[in-house]
Amino acid sequence: MIEFESVSKRFEDGTVAVEDFSFVLPSHKTTVFVGSSGCGKTTLLRMINRMIEPSSGRITIDGVDIAGRNKVELRRSIGYVLQAAGLLPHRKVVDNVATVPLLQGVSKTEARGRALDLLDTVGLDRALAKRYPRQLSGGQQQRVGVARALASDPNILLMDEPFGAVDPIVRADLQAELNRLQRELGKTIVFVTHDIDEAFLLADQVVIFRKGGIIAQAGTPAQILAEPADDFVASFIGADKGKRTLHLQQREGDEGLTLVVDGDGRPIGVLRDGTLEPEVPGP
């Protein structure tokens, strides 16, 4: 469990990125931070591994104040995936994945062996292990970034717009993969994105931010979709345009098929056998 207690961050130049933020991120769940650019999502995320220090307030992990923990140790115990992957260009893929275990003193053979297993885990061909990051596509680099973040088997995974720079098809792939991984691994994931659809897809809990790290609404995707807290949230999730409230419609001549239409009456699909999609089992 990660808990923010009245956390604020004011940068040296006076910018207040986060103001009096209090929130609990439950263990083994995916919490997605979403909001427009500059609202403080990255700042919040980077305070969890002390890449940024809060100006006031405190952050605890399982009840322990992280301010009292050694920064380097803390960072090694938390996986971090960045938008640009941030791989070391002069190291082979396998050594990139093994970065943290090697820092922790695991032997080279063992760390590499584990790194190869992790390539399987994130759906990469082991043949890529000997390549350098430059020789991979953006999507492949991103997977290597995820594998590296998993290498020390951290309980917490921080992901800052990890799929922002890849094309929509690859992104959909990576999202599905992450959902599958999370079902297996049950990490405490903090995921930052601009993309509300991505948030709804991945999240157990979504936090929608206004400027200054102020929570506009927090809840499960269904709760937010069903009852947007205010106009800001409604417009952010697209509910104001009617694209989020769906109705069933039966038209003449359709021989019993049920259409699903959005708030504007635009057909967006058909209801399959009138049954609900079974809920994806949680971790």
């Binding site: 980077r46 890449m51 090694r76 115990s77 971090y80 941030g86 791989l87 070391l88 970065t99 820092l103």
Partner: peptide, 8 residues
């Protein structure tokens, strides 16, 4: 930045 965040 990534190296630092990884705990170097």
């Amino acid at each position: 930045d990534a190296a630092r965040a990884n705990g170097m």
